[in-house]
């Protein structure tokens, strides 16, 4: 499974999203906020930070990069690829 699909599955599972399948999540659409089809709220960011760290060993949370990393599935995959240990 490619990283983006993996992330989508992870988000659906960890955030207990109901009535959403991986195919519904757009690669470029925003994850958070009123523009987002997923409609994640700021509290969901806690799970996302924790699971990305646990699964990929990547820290997201720095005030200058978190908004970039959490912009979309594409951006998140990109950020993880670049910041993975050993990459």
């Amino acid at each position: 499974m490619d990283l983006k699909s993996e992330l989508k599955e992870l988000i659906i599972r960890e955030l207990k999203l109901k009535n959403v399948v991986a195919e519904d999540i757009e690669d470029q659409g925003p994850l958070f906020g009123s523009e987002s089809k997923l409609g994640l709220d700021s509290l969901d960011a806690v799970e996302l930070v924790v699971v990305v760290q646990k699964k990929f060993g990547v820290d997201i949370g720095d005030r200058n990069t978190a908004n970039v990393a959490f912009a979309s599935i594409d951006a998140l995959a990109d950020y993880i690829t670049k910041n993975r240990p050993g990459s």
Partner: peptide
């Protein structure tokens, strides 16, 4: 801040 600073707080806790 971004998402109320929650990513930063979460990261600090982890």
């Amino acid at each position: 801040g971004f998402l109320g600073g929650i990513p930063e707080l979460s990261l600090a806790l982890t």
